[in-house]
């Protein structure tokens, strides 16, 4: 216990007694209980501090309007549900992306088309293009060429005249 020169509690003990009297050491507590001077001193500090609060309350204005809650209590429920759904949707989308991405990977490398299949595809493309070119040159297949020889085309006009008479065409 530290005391002032008159044997009463010092500033530290008095301050501490105001904040937490139980934290004082035993001697100080006993002195405070027995000494009217120290008790009065302590009471004065407590009252001054209390007065600050009292005056602050007195000089503060009153709120001019009441607090208004959102229209319906249920308003907060959909918002929270939406938030949960949004989070779930985002998580699902991320998971889907991860799965898709991991499927395209093979031990950390892209699995892309291998060299064999590329060569095969190129070969097929070339074969197709050759077929197209040959059809451009001669649209008739080999089997039809025997029954539709090139020279037969010279008598085509006569055949047409036979099938569709010229007079009829004119009409």
């Amino acid at each position: 216990m530290s005391t002032n020169d008159r044997g009463h509690l010092g500033t530290e003990e008095l301050n501490l007694s105001v904040i937490a009297e139980q934290d004082l050491d035993r001697n100080s507590r006993e002195h405070l209980q027995a000494c009217t001077v120290c008790r009065r001193e302590r009471q004065l500090i407590v009252e001054q501090l209390g007065l600050v609060g009292t005056l602050a309350k007195r000089y503060a204005p009153e709120p001019s309007r009441k607090v208004v809650l959102p229209a319906m209590e249920t308003d907060r429920r959909p918002a929270r549900t939406f938030g949960w759904q949004l989070a779930f949707g985002a998580a699902a989308a991320c998971a889907l992306l991860l799965i898709t991405f991991s499927l395209t990977l093979d031990n950390g490398r892209f699995r892309g088309p291998d060299q064999m299949s590329i060569a095969q595809e190129m070969e097929e493309d070339e074969r197709l293009m050759a077929g197209v070119s040959s059809l451009e040159e001669d649209p008739l297949l080999e089997d039809y060429r025997k029954i539709s020889p090139e020279e037969a085309t010279s008598g085509l006009d006569d055949t047409l005249d036979f099938i569709v008479p010229v007079d009829e065409i004119k009409v």
Binding site: T11, N15, L16, V18, I19, L44, I45, E47, Q48, L49, G50, L51, V52, T54, L55, R58
Partner: peptide, 26 residues
């Protein structure tokens, strides 16, 4: 809190703005 109360007791201004008031709760 201890430091604040210590300053509160030492500040002369505090005595000024509480001057003239009765040290009693309402």
């Amino acid at each position: 809190l201890y430091r604040a109360v210590d300053k509160f007791r030492k500040e002369q201004d505090v005595q000024g703005f509480l001057k003239g008031e009765n040290y009693e709760y309402e």
